[in-house]
Design a protein around this nucleic acid. Sequence first.
DNA 1: CAATCTTTGTACGGTACCTGACATAACTCG
DNA 2: CGAGTTATGTCAGGTACCGTACAAAGATTG
Lengths: 237, 237
Amino acid sequence: MRTSGFKNTLLKALDGDVIERLRLQPVKFELKHEIENPGNPIDRLYFLEEGMASMTTTFKDGSQVEVGMFGYESVIGVSALMGTKKSLNRVYTQIAGHGYSCQVEDAKREFRLGGAFQFLALRYVQAQLVQAMQSAGCNAKHSFEQRLARWLLLCADRAHVDTFKISHEFLADMLGGRRPTISTTAGILKRKGLIEYTRGEIHILDVPGLTKASCECYLIIKDYLDNYTKFDSTITS
Amino acid sequence: MRTSGFKNTLLKALDGDVIERLRLQPVKFELKHEIENPGNPIDRLYFLEEGMASMTTTFKDGSQVEVGMFGYESVIGVSALMGTKKSLNRVYTQIAGHGYSCQVEDAKREFRLGGAFQFLALRYVQAQLVQAMQSAGCNAKHSFEQRLARWLLLCADRAHVDTFKISHEFLADMLGGRRPTISTTAGILKRKGLIEYTRGEIHILDVPGLTKASCECYLIIKDYLDNYTKFDSTITS
DNA sequence: CAATCTTTGTACGGTACCTGACATAACTCG
DNA sequence: CGAGTTATGTCAGGTACCGTACAAAGATTG
């Protein structure tokens, strides 16, 4: 285990003895696997290594909106460390992948020691908070084209891929819009040569171009998710 | 000090010895006082007892949107406990009031003890996260009338008042809309007999009615902010 | 390979909110 | 009390996105 072939940002930053105490177990995530469901007890924490999962709020009318993304930097279930016993929101896989999991009890015990694990978990919660707050502002002020571009970029970053299977229908759900709106908006990005796609598969062609088409929110969120383990990242400076 | 005449939810839940270690100092907040500014170092934590403060994200074009509200339940600056040295967002008073403050160092020392203060601070961060996530969804899906009603109710709850000085201009900034849109929307609520207002002063007349005019987001956020100190609130059950 | 299902393109009337402008009313200060 | 300032009402043209519907094209199944 020791000097870690981990791809997960948080696990990679931990010493071997901490890793051992967490008693990690490898897990696979198929597509659309429900990792958390609102109201269900959280009994394991998940550290993604590959793949991507979304957290969504579901409204009474059944519609949902994405409020957070999880990739190789993630710890899913941190709220269990914050005194919440039950899951707040739905979390499910958008891109199949794998990672590690541990028991909440082991994580809590390690958290209470007040060492690196606590520090990193708290920093990650902070990053999640930034993500949610920036999204709140973004959803209020920015256009669909900007938000779609932002989503595609973040997704690609989180999962370390530039091609992924996702339908317009799902994108509409994530962004809180309608499917036809996504189709036209995606069409615009396609005509601009920034992406290409066919039936459920999207391929990103031009990252700088997409970044320009998106809003400042992309880089702000990316920065926090990429750098939360570093003490003197651009975040803190 | 002991059995606490505190109105602040978190302070009220702490034992006298913890309170003493925090070395609180009373503070007054005039209107539009800037408590935190993005990039500035956080050197004190603030516990509001009366009044209300908003946290906003500011975009490059100068516009801003509210991403969180602080009232008698609040701890402003918790992110300093999470390993962030500098403030993430602007926080400033919307309704003048007062409260207590303590040095970040004292709060950090207390936090590290892993007792009640840590537990409550983490629970509060959790509540803030819920607030931000719910706002993200709400801003994407709900109408201006719903969101205005939600804002007015939350504001009244946080500050324990049913009348407050706020202009349409400011409301527009908070909700991420335009002033004329607020004017017409507020006019609708007024004609429905839910609120009344004159030049910068809003008075809430009918809370149940406003609740109906708002979206589910109001009660969800209110529930978390009201109950985060209780272990078995509706949140966790 | 026909039948079905899923995904995408597209169109069209409707609505919510924007943008900017102008008018009015209330408060403030000289 | 008159002049300036601030807050609100309102309007009109424009745009972004909704809501719904339907057609077409790729994928899947029997």
